[in-house]
Amino acid sequence: MKAPIAIHHRPGSFSDRWIEFCRDHAIPHVVVNAYWTDIIDRLRGASAFLWHIAHGLPADMLMGRHVLEAAEQMGLVVFPNYSTRWHFDDKIAQKYLLEAAGAPIVPTNVFFDLHTALAWIDKAQFPKVFKLRRGSGSRNVRLVRTAAEARALARRAFGRGYKPAGAVLDSITAWKITKAKREGRLIDFLRVAPARLRHRLTMNLLMGRERGYVYFQDFMPNNEHDTRVTVIGQRAFAFMRRVRSGDFRASGSGQIIYDRERIDMRCVRTAFDVALRLGTQSLAFDFVYDEQRQPRIVEVSFGYAPGPVHDCNGFWDTELNWHEGALWPEEAILHDLIAGISAGSGQDRA
């Protein structure tokens, strides 16, 4: 491979290990800044372009997809490709995508006018789960126990709306302080708290309020944990996350169970099947059980923390054979991308 791989570097993102891997294996690469106004010209001559866009960076969400789309139009192999990224951090898009793929999604209703939303609420059975289309780690997610509460949420959704990053002080709640203390990182947590507050203020300012829609998912009771399955090419990594104490949410709890004997292989099979149908390079699936104990997909994302995936200490292939040994997801992504370049495959949209 003579033409270099272009990598947008953001410390703390997938790019750290992408760059390290390329250096260690003498793979031609160049570090670029995707925010350069002449980034398209700078990508000419590259074989690929990698950019771990982040939902918490307003600039990434504003123009990341456009730059990656342009790079694909130039013939570059990119990560994330179109099928992997177009629905990123958009639960409304994921609803339609998963329904179109015939995936077993948690039943979801979304409305784009108040009158229709209120009419549905009058007939709905509660509780439901209210969500904004943006956010991760259970941010912007709440349990709605009554129709009256749902009406209030809907009226606000079609009025002043919601801050996409949540209330500023949500970043330093008592639960998060307790979690940091339990994990032995309370001092570090408090040290970065001012920066977290500033970041959340900036996000809410630049991203604008979420309004003009209201989104409800059915509540799936009696789940003590969810199951996260991350599919990267022909590999599936899986672990479970305990539900927070006194809560119904598992995402963001940090209470991870690495026990592959307890993983429901129906989740792994479903994740492989849906990822293949969608044509994604890397996608994390969150599963819970419905009242018949059937796995249902809550949401998906290509943006996830790599550490827990690595700590699975192995993965299943598409034949459900187990391969022992830790693997960083960033390296798995890069392996697949280099293989695609070497095969001259390019990337057709799924």
Rank of each mutant, 00 (worst) to 15 (best):
P4L: 10
A6I: 03
A6T: 12
H8E: 09
R10A: 13
R10N: 06
S15H: 11
W18I: 13
W18L: 13
H25C: 09
I27Y: 01
Y35K: 06
I39L: 11
I40L: 13
I40T: 13
R42E: 13
L43Q: 09
L43S: 07
L43Y: 08
R44V: 09
S47L: 12
A54D: 10
H55K: 00
P58L: 07
M61N: 00
M61C: 09
H66E: 14
E69R: 15
A71H: 05
G75D: 12
L76S: 10
S83A: 15
S83W: 07
S83I: 03
R85Q: 14
W86R: 09
H87I: 05
D90E: 04
D90S: 11
I92W: 07
L97S: 01
L98P: 00
I105K: 03
P107C: 14
A117M: 06
D122W: 10
K123V: 11
K123F: 05
K128N: 02
R133N: 02
R134W: 06
S136P: 04
R142S: 14
R142M: 15
L143A: 08
T146R: 00
A147H: 02
A147P: 05
R151C: 15
R155F: 11
R156I: 14
G161T: 10
K163Q: 03
A165C: 07
A165Q: 00
G166V: 06
G166I: 08
A174C: 02
K176H: 11
K181Q: 12
R182Q: 09
E183H: 12
R185W: 09
R185F: 07
R185N: 12
I187D: 13
I187H: 08
V192L: 08
A195S: 12
R198G: 03
H199A: 12
T202K: 11
M203Q: 14
M207T: 02
V214Y: 04
F216E: 04
D218W: 00
D218N: 15
F219Y: 15
M220K: 15
N223T: 08
V229P: 00
I232A: 01
I232N: 07
G233F: 00
R235Q: 14
F237S: 00
M240R: 08
R241H: 06
R242T: 02
V243H: 06
V243Y: 07
S245C: 01
S251F: 01
G254L: 01
I256T: 07
I256R: 03
I257W: 07
R260Q: 14
E261A: 14
R262N: 08
I263Y: 10
D264A: 08
M265L: 15
M265R: 12
R266Q: 15
C267D: 00
V268F: 02
T270G: 02
A271Y: 08
R277A: 15
G279C: 03
G279R: 01
Q281A: 12
Q281D: 14
S282R: 03
D286C: 05
F287E: 04
D290P: 07
D290T: 13
Q294E: 15
I297Y: 06
P306V: 13
V309C: 09
N313V: 06
G314Y: 06
T318I: 12
L320H: 01
E324P: 02
G325H: 10
G325Q: 02
E331F: 03
A332M: 10
L334S: 05
I338H: 10
A339W: 09
A339L: 10
G340Q: 13
I341H: 08
G344S: 05
G344I: 03
S345V: 01
G346P: 09
Q347Y: 07
D348S: 14
